[in-house]
Amino acid sequence: MSSVASAAMDAGSRPIDPIILQIGEKKFYTTRQTIAESAVLSSLVNLRDPDPEKPYFVDADPALFEHILRYLRTGIFPLLHDVEKGHDVPLYHALQHQAEFYQIERLANWLLAKAYLDAVSTRTWPKSITLHGEQQLQHIDEMVRAAGRPFKILRIDESRAKVFQCPNRNWRHDGLRSVCINARCLPTHRASFALTAEMSVYKVELVILEVRVHQELVMPISEQPALPPPYQNTE
């Protein structure tokens, strides 16, 4: 049985014991059951009974401990990934040392194996769009229509030209006569009218990014309780 599952069983069979940890200059409010997976923290709190007025002190980095405590509460491995920058490898290394310091074997082994590299996959594909007028450029997120996916602009070329302009001054329709007709801004019998205006035209080259998180590698189902400890059987 995994240490996470054992901690969950303990949490369901014993009363919840709130404790205060002071990690460096910051206090953290948690329970004895939540930190059960850490041999160091468990040993520390077992030295005496919990006292709400007297926190257990560890001289360590509180910013890093936030990630450690989040893992202890949920059993979910930390993913420190940015769409454009990728994985925060130095932070992973720092957390590995912290996991080893607190003797959290499962987390330390996951970080040591760099399993986070397999937990996230990224693919990209190029796209070219033409924007008509400054309003469309300012709202490029809407105009790209990337189904909510992030994108990165590679190049923008600007020129001036006379292009179709929506008679209702809907900037989203500029340069897109068919869209304007479908939206009934432009009656069909006027579709051939030369409704043009001189404006900036932007040729935009970009790449659309798609990031997929493989949840089975971040939160193995076989090892996870139905709810994060210590909230089982507390009604």
Score class of each variant (00 low, 15 high):
residue 133 G to M: 06
residue 205 E to N: 09
residue 168 N to H: 10
residue 165 Q to E: 10
residue 219 M to N: 14
residue 76 I to F: 07
residue 84 E to I: 12
residue 213 V to H: 11
residue 169 R to L: 13
residue 215 Q to F: 08
residue 146 A to E: 03
residue 150 P to E: 04
residue 203 K to F: 07
residue 101 F to G: 02
residue 110 W to H: 08
residue 16 I to W: 12
residue 73 R to N: 07
residue 101 F to L: 09
residue 114 K to N: 11
residue 182 N to K: 15
residue 96 Q to V: 01
residue 171 W to F: 12
residue 218 V to Q: 05
residue 125 W to D: 08
residue 178 S to P: 06
residue 13 S to M: 13
residue 165 Q to I: 12
residue 49 D to M: 09
residue 176 L to N: 14
residue 82 D to Y: 01
residue 221 I to C: 08
residue 222 S to N: 12
residue 66 E to V: 12
residue 118 D to G: 11
residue 181 I to K: 12
residue 106 R to K: 13
residue 218 V to W: 03
residue 59 D to H: 11
residue 123 R to I: 13
residue 101 F to Q: 06
residue 42 S to Q: 08
residue 40 V to K: 03
residue 58 V to G: 01
residue 112 L to Q: 14
residue 144 V to T: 06
residue 146 A to R: 03
residue 147 A to K: 12
residue 80 L to Q: 02
residue 29 Y to I: 04
residue 157 D to Y: 07
residue 85 K to F: 02
residue 23 I to V: 15
residue 169 R to H: 13
residue 138 Q to A: 14
residue 34 T to K: 06
residue 100 E to F: 01
residue 225 P to I: 04
residue 132 H to M: 10
residue 206 L to D: 05
residue 100 E to W: 00
residue 99 A to T: 03
residue 13 S to P: 04
residue 134 E to C: 08
residue 97 H to F: 10
residue 91 L to T: 11
residue 198 E to N: 10
residue 59 D to Q: 15
residue 148 G to H: 05
residue 3 S to M: 13
residue 32 R to P: 00
residue 144 V to M: 07
residue 120 V to K: 10
residue 17 D to V: 08
residue 134 E to N: 13
residue 119 A to P: 05
residue 44 L to H: 00
residue 134 E to H: 13
residue 52 P to A: 08
residue 96 Q to N: 10
residue 211 V to G: 00
residue 3 S to H: 14
residue 176 L to T: 06
residue 140 I to D: 01
residue 51 D to V: 07
residue 183 A to S: 12
residue 25 E to N: 15
residue 163 V to D: 02
residue 223 E to I: 06
residue 70 R to Q: 14
residue 202 Y to C: 05
residue 44 L to Q: 00
residue 187 P to H: 00
residue 233 N to D: 08
residue 65 F to D: 03
residue 180 C to M: 06
residue 184 R to T: 13
residue 74 T to F: 00
